[in-house]
Design a protein around this nucleic acid. Structure first.
Lengths: 334, 334
DNA sequence: TTGTAAGCGTTATCAA
DNA sequence: TTGATAACGCTTACAA
């Protein structure tokens, strides 16, 4: 059996309270006492029982991270950042994969898993603005992205519109005029797809270029296969763009792949830019230009927002923090 | 405050024990009683307190997954499978990123995090055979891969030698003779690098082809950048292979990229095969041939081994389970 | 600076 | 089939 505080206390000849004081770095412990306790801890290989501590404290030391799936590189990289940032704060992360399924996204919000964590970092894909009222407001929650907005919840946003606009402007700046956009979710306004498309359209409008529906590649999930398929359909229909804006990097990479297979040269015939700047963007052929966000910063900010709620007696005002971005120029845009 | 079993019991007019019986699907509860309890649970929005349950049960319902980092696609996909398989069994996964750092790998084995999980699935990269004795033998542990072998611990292995041999034989089968190998860790015998290299060498030996050190690309971590660098160095030295075996897919993809940049055609000039069959292999240009393993099967097997230990009164004999593989032929080998 | 004792919300034992 | 009650191992008033 594992040693308990009782065992340590007995061996050190002190009370459990004193052991607890030592374990929790309570300052008013005599050095000599502390040392006796420490050595007893070492002797017994004592490790604190997290369940007991959590039960007593009313906290679990764990936070949830709900995301579509880890095999999407963007989310794997986000998870990496969140886990690292959480570890710095002594928190443990439980990842819940929602598969961008509406029911499972709701479950992450309210289900049993939610009860075993102190807070939730939430990156929804299926829920939308109409679900705002379903967001729990009593328990700490940070929303990532701009899919849902609520005045009652903390947000870390991505400046989707501005970054997409900047990406499109970059393509315009290198002389491209027939810019396809891949990954469109028709009718969507508030999600990443809707917002990034809005940025694209604003850039074109300001450049005085007319909107051409033939250049819109609509797809479902944002994977490479759909990026390839969207541009394939477009090319089959006889529409040949001189640039492609992928609403995320995997779409852009898929589209780039499909065009190369069909003999188009990137960037000579078609320039390509993505969004998110996943690691893979640095290693594709050619390397992929992209709108870059600092995921570590997103993770740290989200954790700060959560912890502000853990600590507070009165819940703080919900905050909305926007993450900075920059356009990274690589081979796919020449 | 969240409702407790007491509250539910009071509302339903029964004892806490009865609520507990309902919650735990104890069969001997009258249907009518069960229904009253259920409706009280629903009314109060009661959710069980995991800390209290775990304290009482002496289990946490959580398992650890120690891996180098999630931004490596192979590990992200492995984590996805493990989380999914764990969820099916009502277990929660805590991911610990070791950064393939020796100290952090040891910490995953013995540290505080370890104490809050019931078992650990462990994919070491820095520890080696000499660390066998450091493996805890009292707590449930499953080792992934063939980096460490111990008779005292469960293993899920990958048939590294056989699969690498098959991959090399496949290249030989399509007529390649100067087969470079990328990702070599000189001097390593037991890790993935050592074993896969062994498979490569066995295949060449059986084909009667002499070992050529110029075709060995040694690198550190197995990322795309190092794959590119290894083949770059080789080409700079005037060695031009007619095929490349990447000891994993990201190495192969990096190497493929570098060769394409230098004007070599894949697969015409150089065929490329990887190892692991990550999702990206299906979307690169050209698509990447690879040695495929079923990660879901690995995950399920690992969990079965852990659970066998949770359940057992007497610890079961350590088992070693080998995962099947197959060579997937794609564009990079013509 | 340290000790005593009461709980945190469950589950397990035993009795009814 | 259900209920009383004692743990599980820790933290925290409160006392000393």
């Amino acid at each position: 059996m594992a040693a308990t505080m009782q065992d340590v206390a007995q061996l050190a000849g002190v009370s459990v309270k004193t052991v607890s004081n030592v374990v929790n770095d309570y300052p008013y412990v005599r050095t000599e006492t502390r040392e006796r306790v420490m050595s007893a801890i070492a002797d017994l290989g004592y490790q604190i029982n997290a369940s007991a501590r959590n039960l007593r404290r009313g906290r679990t030391g764990m936070i949830g991270l709900a995301l579509p799936m880890l095999s999407l590189p963007y989310f794997a990289e986000l998870a990496e950042s969140v886990i690292t940032a959480a570890e710095e704060r002594g928190l443990v992360v439980i990842i819940e994969q929602t598969g961008s399924d509406r029911r499972r996204e709701l479950d992450a919000l309210h289900g049993a898993r939610r009860a075993m964590t102190d807070g939730l970092i939430y990156s929804p894909l299926a829920l939308g603005a109409e679900d705002e009222e379903l967001l729990p407001t009593s328990s700490p929650l940070v929303l990532l992205g701009e899919r849902i907005f609520s005045d009652r919840v903390d947000h870390v946003t991505m400046r989707n519109v501005e970054a997409a606009k900047a990406a499109t402007e970059y393509l315009l700046g290198i002389g491209r005029r027939r810019i396809a956009v891949v990954g469109v979710h028709p009718g969507e306004v508030v999600g990443s797809a809707g917002l990034r498309l809005q940025g694209y359209e604003e850039a074109l409008a300001e450049a005085g270029i007319e909107r051409d529906p033939a250049l819109y590649g609509a797809v479902g999930p944002w994977g490479r296969a759909n990026g390839a398929q969207a541009i394939g359909t477009m090319l089959d229909a006889g529409t040949v763009p001189d640039a492609v804006f992928g609403l995320n990097d995997t779409l852009a990479l898929g589209a780039m792949h499909e065009m190369q297979v069909r003999g188009l040269r990137v960037p000579e015939d078609v320039a390509v830019i993505g969004f998110d700047d996943i690691e893979e963007a640095q290693y594709s052929t050619p390397t992929l230009s992209s709108a870059h966000f600092d995921r570590d910063e997103v993770a740290r900010t989200a954790l700060q927002l959560l912890e502000a709620r853990f600590a507070a007696r009165v819940p703080p005002e919900p905050r909305r923090v926007a993450t900075e971005f920059r356009i990274v120029e690589r081979g796919s845009t020449g």
